[in-house]
Design a protein around this nucleic acid. Sequence first.
DNA 1: CTGTTAGCGCATTCAT
DNA 2: ATGAATGCGCTAACAG
Lengths: 351, 351
Amino acid sequence: MMINPEYAFRTGMESGATLEDVAREAGVSPATVSRCLNNPGIVRPQLKAKVDAAIEKLDYVPHGAARSLASRRSRLIGAIFPSLDSALFGGTLEALQSEIADSGYTPVVASSNYDPEQERNHLRNMLASGIDALMLVGAAREASVYRLIRRRKVPYVLTWVAGTDGTHPCIGFDNRAAAAAVTRHLLDMGHRRFAMISGATANNDRAAGRLAGVQAALEERGLTLDPTRIITRPFGVEEGRAALRLLMAREPRPTAIICGADPFAYGALLECQNLGLAVPDDLSITGFDDMWLSASLPPGLTTLRTPRNEMGTLAGRYMLSVLAGEETLPPRPLDFELIVRGSTGPPSQAA
Amino acid sequence: MMINPEYAFRTGMESGATLEDVAREAGVSPATVSRCLNNPGIVRPQLKAKVDAAIEKLDYVPHGAARSLASRRSRLIGAIFPSLDSALFGGTLEALQSEIADSGYTPVVASSNYDPEQERNHLRNMLASGIDALMLVGAAREASVYRLIRRRKVPYVLTWVAGTDGTHPCIGFDNRAAAAAVTRHLLDMGHRRFAMISGATANNDRAAGRLAGVQAALEERGLTLDPTRIITRPFGVEEGRAALRLLMAREPRPTAIICGADPFAYGALLECQNLGLAVPDDLSITGFDDMWLSASLPPGLTTLRTPRNEMGTLAGRYMLSVLAGEETLPPRPLDFELIVRGSTGPPSQAA
DNA sequence: CTGTTAGCGCATTCAT
DNA sequence: ATGAATGCGCTAACAG
């Protein structure tokens, strides 16, 4: 089998120059080189210059594993997301990465595909690979998982949920309150007949919280959400479209449909167009998360903007702070914002 | 300052049981325990059972750094993407992660924000943290970056581009040919007046390739793409919308607009609706990448489906194979597929 | 401020 | 098939 020589890689790590080589080259002790790397302030500039020159000359790169072993810190932060291929968590990851990069930390990431089993496996892997801290999404998981984390004494933080009871450090927002805010917006405009398109609530406390928030807000006004008016589907545009058809097929039609995620709402909006339903005159539609199309898709989607980048940033900052040994409290639940656009309005008289 | 005792983490790694502890507990030598972990086949079942029991009892987790140091492999694979908050690269990352997970590898990821400087920094970091292999997007970067990688002898693979000249191992598709295919589709329907909305081509060989492909396909038929009909913008829906307005403001209007990325096309489609332009009768529009809304947004976006998940899977497989010491050739350029939907049709007679 | 001394926890020779 | 010995490259006391 011919193989392009350009591709002739080694297998396994290459030696390269070691810290000791640098020390020899610079005529100092290994410890001094180490100091130049980790605590440059305390070394005489003159020496430091020589060391820097040697590092440059030998093209020295510290050996991460050796460093971790000796220092007992890997400079790796784990992050497990339910999914990576929607734009939803990408922003959080990007913000997290960007926040911790300057401190020399790198995220190691995995996607659980919304599957607790996969999450657990990735967690084991990460724990074994020696992550210094861990970011997860949501709080709903078996107690044994938390035991695993705590036993390793790895600082962790839960995102996309608000710490309800102080059991876990959380950096997120109150999904329930957010969904209630959306619902009240519709109630205040006079809507009384509601339906909801929700994500699956099993193992997903964000989806469950949103559903509960809708129900709670309705009950405040003496209304209830008929269970047959709740359609649960995996997140997706086509799913939203199909759900809307179902919901509008039965009399009396709802005047407002609350979607647990923007993609549902995109689908619902598009299907209205298809069915010749006027939004918001015939039907009001709301989304959740204010994703990138919400402002653009006519008539503009009323939705709830969640602080998805901010969660990544603050989660990163929180973990760094804990790792630095500072006493750190996670911040209060983050703010969300109701973004009112064209897809909601008062119900028509006829309806 | 009060601090919830639940949050009282340590700083730095915890000891936990070591391989030696396990050996003592099981009454065997450390070497045997190591074998049970890394090469279970060669150890007597009876002993292995005792070791497994000890591992279970002590809740032993191998220490990644020590393992890396001794074995000279970190089991970490680096992946640097231009961006993580679009859904574009998320699928590739997810597929990569999923492909390598079973082999005990974990991706460490970073986003360069389309900035070569940031990419270089992340690369340095990753090299220092001892990644065993590396995945990058695109081929356009300074030679010094490749030197850095090669000097460390880290196997790498470039994605989202096809290896044109065999300089680098690539797992991707031919952006130029793909864009040409889109263009020919329009030419074949009779279009003669074209415009393009393109991503920035600096440091982005995917965008550059797509632009070149359009130009080449036009020149095959004796046409040229007027430079003033090329609008270059950062990727985004609103950017596409604005670009469409610009392009349609000047006579003679184009009958077909080729977008270098789907978000542009979404914006263009929406703006047509806004301006009262009929698609495809007044104007044909094409996208690129077949992202999640392309099938749903009326009238359905004709676009080019890129193998974004496949690239992640194959890149992962390729790197694993190289790491396993197998002679490995990257596959030929991957296939793309023209997806014809409602947004393209013959130009109207009037136009 | 700098050099010396010891490991960190494991994989891997080499013996047996 | 198993055990004993060695060192991966670095940081962290400690001593000077």
